[in-house]
Amino acid sequence: MPDDEVRLTPPESLLQVIDNLSKFHREHEEYYSQAPLQQAGRLQARARALKSLADRWSVVEAGETSPIAFAGTEDLNAPGLVAESGILFMEGEGEPAELQRLKSEVAVLADETQQGGEWLARAMEQAWDMAGNLAAYPALADLLGERHRIIANDWQSAGLQALVARLLRRALDLLAQVDFSPAALRADLRGERKAPAYLYSASELLDRAADLMAQSAILVHENERRWRVFRARVRELRSA
């Protein structure tokens, strides 16, 4: 290859690195274009459960405590919700285990989402610098827009993940204002009915977090073709 062409093309060592990144990061992003959609669906289901309880507690009259231990509370259980979510309020018991699990799962998701967003933001800092260095090679000049768009999409996704984590934690803060024991809920039903308001607001935050997770997945999914085109050029240059 003539010397003037050599200067147009990145060295083989750099092409090898780019080829590796293009292959494995594309595969990595294929996963993260789907996983957030599944998580968003689960978040929406949790939000629906909270809304069902809030709907029920907004209109039902508080019942009397039954002497039958472990009997389901007719007033506190929302129609159809027990079969859908497993959340069952029982006489003589405290907060349902399924509701505790719901909050625990949301807390874990908040931590995982924050960690993932922070990692992705750091990775995009490095990717941005590397992509800028590729401007020295005209053989890749027409694809630098594609590469920077990939980085921009991933960086935006990282920001969305950080916001999702905040929304999830604030939803948990709101749920923490509610005492979910049957005795406390019945007292609330006979009083100011504060619990439904907290549940509605918490569910709305979960819904918004789910929407943003879906947006994050869409951004990452948009990169699939760009990775494919970019890698095809790199492999072409390596084989030349």
Rank of each mutant, 00 (worst) to 15 (best):
R226M: 14
A152H: 07
A183S: 02
E118S: 02
Q115E: 06
P182E: 00
V17S: 12
F70V: 13
L37K: 14
G41Y: 11
L109Q: 09
S58D: 03
F89K: 01
V82N: 06
N153H: 09
L102C: 10
A232Q: 14
A121F: 02
A136D: 04
L163I: 05
G116R: 00
A176C: 07
L53V: 10
A158E: 05
L219V: 04
E222M: 11
Y32G: 00
W155N: 11
G116P: 00
E224W: 05
E95D: 14
A171F: 12
L144H: 08
P138W: 05
K51P: 01
L206C: 06
A131E: 09
R193P: 00
T9N: 15
Q156G: 13
D142S: 13
D111S: 07
G145A: 14
S22A: 15
R226I: 11
A176M: 07
F180T: 00
E112A: 04
A165N: 01
R56Y: 04
R226T: 10
G116I: 00
G159E: 09
R46P: 04
A110C: 08
M213L: 15
D173H: 13
V106G: 03
P182A: 01
A171L: 11
D129G: 09
K194N: 00
Q34K: 08
P36G: 09
L50F: 08
F89A: 03
A214S: 14
P11T: 07
A107D: 15
L174K: 06
A232K: 11
L109Y: 05
M213H: 09
G145K: 10
L175V: 08
A171Q: 13
L167W: 08
E95Q: 13
Y31D: 03
L134M: 04
Q156E: 15
E84P: 04
A197W: 02
E204P: 01
D19M: 12
L143P: 06
G72K: 12
Y32H: 05
G80Q: 11
R26E: 15
M213T: 11
D173E: 15
Q161T: 09
D154M: 13
L172T: 10
W227P: 03
R169P: 06
I18T: 13
K103D: 13
A123Y: 01
L167Q: 11
V108H: 11
H28P: 00
A232P: 09
S104D: 15
